[in-house]
């Protein structure tokens, strides 16, 4: 019972950390139909920016400052998103998938190079704020508060994004554009602007995820690649840019990875890939299918 509980808990932690990274990726994929390789790179930049802000304050931050810092990283990376949309994404609207994939791959390389130039190569580690650096015991299960916090953040990001898409005016416009950009144009909507908003929101989410997950990870220029394949898997398995699909996919893959490791510890780290391959073969359009865009 203890083991099962912990395995589920760890699986959820994996799932929500991955979802935090994948949420922004899903948004761009659903609206702009670009699978953004560079997303991992901007996630990494968010983590580094938030690290730099932290250095300004010294260690042992209170929780609210930690959150503010993550938001600040989100704002910085969101601004980068504005630049990237102007310079790159705007030109990728009418090209084939291969070109946009390669363009974003090039961006990922540039992100890695830029991080190396600005922050150097040394590994850096940050511990969670003191308020999140303890353990909660539940029966004989022990759950680090920081991990609980990450799971909470993942759920909050999901709910927030769903509300944004379905309840706000901008969100509804985004859905219209995703469904039929041509028709949206005819109706007099400023499609370009809606694309821009989408990119900024997506990048800001990557940056904020970097800030939130930073105490979970060592910082190094390799960070950009670490979540990438995982997040790709979640987005694709979730279906064409479906936020709900990505959320479910993250949980499914997280649990499979976690239980796989539990039952077959001699083959670490392959179950998520294995499951992804098998599920995609059975259901190539992903969990939510094609029709449920955004």
């Amino acid at each position: 019972m203890y083991d099962i509980g912990m395995t589920v808990f760890n699986g959820l932690a994996w799932a929500m950390a991955t979802f935090l990274v994948a949420a922004g990726l899903t948004l761009i994929f659903g609206i702009l139909h670009i699978l953004n390789f560079a997303h991992g790179g901007f996630f990494m930049i968010g983590a580094y920016v938030s690290y730099s802000i932290m250095l300004g304050f010294g260690g042992g931050l209170p929780l609210w400052l930690y959150l503010v810092r993550a938001m600040a990283a989100g704002v910085v990376v969101g601004l980068l998103g504005w630049v990237v949309d102007k310079l790159v994404f705007r030109r990728l609207r009418d090209v084939e998938d291969a070109y946009s994939l390669i363009a974003t791959y090039a961006l990922l390389l540039i992100c890695g190079g830029a991080v190396t130039l600005i922050w150097g190569l040394n590994y850096m580690g940050v511990m969670p704020p003191p308020a999140l650096n303890s353990v909660i015991f539940l029966g004989d299960m022990f759950m680090p508060t920081y991990t609980i916090f990450i799971i909470f953040c993942g759920v909050a990001a999901f709910v927030g994004l769903e509300l944004f898409i379905s309840k706000t005016r901008t969100g509804r416009l985004i859905r219209v554009v995703a469904a039929d950009p041509w028709m949206a144009q005819l109706l007099g909507l400023n499609v370009k602007r809606i694309y821009l908003v989408t990119v900024i929101v997506s990048f800001a989410m990557a940056g904020a995820a970097g800030g939130l997950l930073m105490p979970n990870q060592s910082l190094s220029p390799e960070l950009g690649g670490i979540f990438l394949l995982q997040a790709f898997g979640v987005v694709i398995l979730g279906g064409m840019g479906s936020i709900r699909g990505a959320f479910v996919a993250a949980i499914v893959l997280g649990l499979i990875e976690s239980f796989g490791t539990y039952f077959f510890p001699q083959y670490p780290g392959i179950f998520f890939l294995l499951a992804l391959g098998v599920i995609l073969l059975l259901r190539p359009e992903g969990i939510m299918g094609k029709e449920q865009t955004a």
């Binding site: 932690a13 950390a17 979540f227």
Partner: peptide
Amino acid sequence: PILVPYGSGDYRNYIQQAMR
């Protein structure tokens, strides 16, 4: 020995194995 994957972002399951 507990085998952990290379370049992973999440080691909690392996830590749990180690705790046992």
